[in-house]
């Protein structure tokens, strides 16, 4: 079993290090678990996921992120990815001129030992299998990464990458945003198919709707850069019913 520990994490934009966005966040995720972080806009949810993935726009001011007992903060983004972290982007980049097939191939190759050859037949077999599962047309392999994709196609492409790269921990940043209900179901089915002992998931979402389809083991409410409330899946329903103002009021009362 693997674990991802976020300890007293303080994150700011690299450009404004004196204005923290994440303000001392603690969370431990183990493989086999699905955690959901919910919270209003601007509370630091996306900042958290990007900082963990090593995005250069974000600076970790203090605290630590520990993957299986080892801090990842000194690691480059690509090293973090190869160590088993995956960030499903809220707004995946369009990369004209790089086909999905070549892109994924390079990502799979990067995980292999120096000099080891990729088994092309096996690779395509696996790729097509995952594409079928996510109802992605096989013609997509020759299309440029995310270029001209609809919102739903982009998100399915993120899940496809996750399925191919088999991370230990996946940080899913608002994967439900911009999805209609059919696309949401396909994405959820994909994630559910990957659930199991070898994968830990952190779902970041604004809406409870996603959690109807990917049922979390734990739900955390994030507000003003911290986790202010944790519970099981019923917390999400309560939040949906009462709204985020409920959390604010409750916090104010403390």
């Amino acid at each position: 079993m693997s674990s991802l520990e976020i300890r007293d994490l303080v994150v700011a934009l690299t450009a404004t290090p004196d204005k923290p966005i994440v303000k001392g966040l603690n969370l431990t995720i183990k493989t086999g678990e699905v955690h959901a972080i919910m919270g209003p806009n601007g509370t630091g949810k996306s900042t958290l996921s990007k900082a963990i993935a090593g995005h250069p726009d974000y600076q970790i001011i203090s605290g630590d992120v520990i993957l299986d007992g080892k801090s990842i903060l000194e690691m480059e983004p690509d090293e973090r990815a190869r160590a088993g972290l995956f960030l499903a982007f809220q707004y995946p980049s369009e990369i004209p001129g790089v086909s999905i097939a070549n892109f994924l191939r390079a990502a799979v190759q990067a995980r292999m030992a120096e000099g080891e050859e990729l088994d092309a037949t096996g690779y395509y077999k696996k790729l097509y299998g995952k594409m079928d599962m996510l109802k992605i047309d096989r013609k997509f392999t020759s299309r440029s990464v995310n270029e001209g994709f609809s919102g739903g196609e982009k998100k399915r492409c993120e899940i496809l990458q996750m399925a191919m790269l088999e991370p230990s921990f996946s940080l899913m940043d608002e994967t439900d945003s911009g999805l209609d209900i059919d696309a949401l179901k396909i994405v959820a089915e994909g994630v559910n198919a990957m659930r199991g002992d070898k994968l830990g998931v952190l779902l970041i979402t604004h809406y409870q709707r996603l959690l109807d389809y990917i049922v979390p083991d734990f739900v955390h409410v994030m507000y003003d850069g911290r986790i202010v409330k944790s519970g099981d899946k019923s917390l999400a329903l309560e939040l949906e019913a009462k709204g985020y103002d409920w959390v604010k009021t409750e916090l104010a009362a403390v």
Binding site: A53, G54, H55, P56, E76, P77, D78, A81, R82, F86, L87, F89, P92, S93, I95, P96, G97, V98, N102, F103, L104, A106, A107, A110, R111, S144, V145, Q161, L165
Partner: peptide, 21 residues
Amino acid sequence: FYLQARGIKPEAAKQMLIFAF
């Protein structure tokens, strides 16, 4: 960053983007 976040090494990522160009 997107390419690196998939584990592709910086040099290889840079080269992919030059080729994409």
